[in-house]
Amino acid sequence: MTKRSSLNLNLDLNLVLERCRTDPPNVLRTLLAVQEAFGYVAPSAVPEIARTLGVTEADVAGVLSYYPELRMTQPGRHLVRICMGESCFANHCDRLLTAVRSYLGVDLGHTTPDWKFTLDRIHCLGNCGVGPTVLVDEDIYGRVNPADISSLLDTYR
């Protein structure tokens, strides 16, 4: 990363953080706002976040590491998530997971080499009546068969 682009990132971060100055400070809200803007929360941003909110870096790091939905690395262009909740589990979502891992060539928590897809799991989207469920970004798919996986993901290529 060039010095110029890292300067821009810093300015954008400050813009986001300015909107998060509340009394009392809310660390989780702030981290969610940073992730909304950048796609993830870089650990290198923790000191600046702590300074703006008037809390310790440990406070910020503690919240950042606690919540599954907060990411510390840049995700791929599309986030593919398989629901592993009990109803989808009963509907054999493990077979969907096998199909997706095979199609993408990566395992849970990893991103394809072309940076197009990140694969993850999610626990319950409330689609239990129409499972098993696959979520790609904000698009929800129900009653998914393993055989549907390739055509489903092809539309995102």
Partner: peptide, 10 residues
């Protein structure tokens, strides 16, 4: 509504 298998709140 974290219980998987529930959706009435949703």
């Amino acid at each position: 509504e974290g219980d998987a298998g529930t959706y009435c709140d949703r």
